[in-house]
């Protein structure tokens, strides 16, 4: 167990190091930032001073070492565009994105899994067919189209929900949350649904397919032959066996939720990191871009680690690789 965690942590560190290297090289390839930061009429001395302050006069390995050391402490330098420390910008924006992604992921999981189980068990019922047909829409429509349609329906026509921004925010000191007020929820519900819809249908279809597969296995037949109750067979034996692939996909999908959140944040003017990143690209704001890259990599690494640990919890075959099968 410990060896397993240590091994995974080591892999994680290697991945993060490589990502840091890539995001560092962005600084090298995208021109001289000093020109973008100072006005046309700045003197050579002013430029040199700024260059010195940004650490651009050191050798490249030294610069990289600085970069990594700062990054480990959560410092990513000054935003070229706003002249503020990047970590401050991110700290402002991160809670918005995290809450959006978390609410979406939970929606996808808590609705998608039961729907998948239901459609797997009652293959030919009308409700199952309805779910499957609707899920096709969820899979085939692009996120932004769904978002715009929802804005049109619930925001413009019905006027039930606000169409942009984050509201009802409560400041908890380090974290500003919008999940503690009804107003906050009224803001998050549409973007979160938009973002969740694709994952939800994916999870539903995955759980359904896995259920159908598992229900055909010998151990389910044998469970029936032993006279176990349907409830125990469906939810104890079958559902648990569908969990491993669901965990895998969910892990991957939280990553893609983060990625797609950029689009959703744009459609709903959600003040999250995605928006920050997009603005960063427009202004070639390298510190913002590179820190976003590093942060995303960190999330992926953490998610992967969590997924591995969950496998471990669910599947005994992984827990006892070394016990071996004695005859």
């Amino acid at each position: 167990m410990l060896a397993f965690i240590v091994q995974r942590l080591f892999q994680a560190i290697v991945v993060m190091f490589v990502v840091a290297l890539i995001s560092f090289t962005m600084f090298q390839f995208v021109g001289d930032p000093v020109n973008n930061m100072v006005g046309q009429e700045a003197t050579t001395e002013q430029r040199d001073a700024l260059r010195e302050r940004l650490g651009l006069n050191d050798t490249i390995p030294v610069q990289f070492a600085h970069y990594v050391m700062n990054a480990v402490q959560g410092e990513f330098g000054l935003s070229y565009r706003m002249g503020k420390p990047v970590q401050e910008l991110i700290a402002e924006r991160m809670p918005a994105t995290m809450e959006l992604v978390a609410v979406s992921a939970l929606m996808a999981l808590l609705i998608g899994v039961p729907m998948g189980v239901y459609t797997g068990l009652h293959r030919n019922s009308w409700l199952s067919r309805g779910f499957l047909t609707i899920s096709l829409v969820g899979i085939s429509l692009p996120t932004f189209v769904i978002g715009i349609l929802m804005i049109l329906a619930f925001g413009v026509w019905l006027g039930w929900l606000p169409t942009f921004g984050r509201g009802g925010v409560v400041d908890l000191g380090v974290w500003k949350t919008s999940l503690m007020t009804a107003q906050g929820w009224s803001h998050i519900i549409m973007p979160a649904t938009t973002l969740a819809l694709f994952q939800l249908t994916l999870i539903m279809r995955l759980v359904r397919a896995e259920m159908l597969e598992v229900l055909r296995t010998d151990y389910i037949k044998f469970a029936r032959a032993r006279g176990l109750r349907d409830r125990a067979i469906n939810y104890g034996h079958a559902l648990k066996n569908t969990l491993v692939p669901v965990i895998t996909i969910m892990g991957l999908q939280i990553g893609s939720l983060l990625a797609f959140s950029i689009i959703t944040e744009t459609v709903f003017a959600w003040p999250g990191m995605g928006l920050l990143f997009l603005q960063g690209i427009q202004f070639v704001d390298i510190p913002v871009m590179s820190s976003y890259l590093v942060l995303m990599a960190l999330f992926f690494v953490i998610i992967n680690l969590t997924v591995d640990l969950l496998y471990y919890a669910v599947d005994p075959r992984l827990r006892s690789e070394h016990v071996g099968a004695g005859h």
Partner: peptide
């Protein structure tokens, strides 16, 4: 269902797949 297991038991062909791995 109550007959199965209690009055009639069954043994299948493949022991590798007859038991729930989890």
């Amino acid at each position: 269902r109550q007959v199965r297991g209690r009055e009639i038991g069954m043994v299948f062909q493949d022991p590798l797949t007859s038991l729930n791995p989890l």
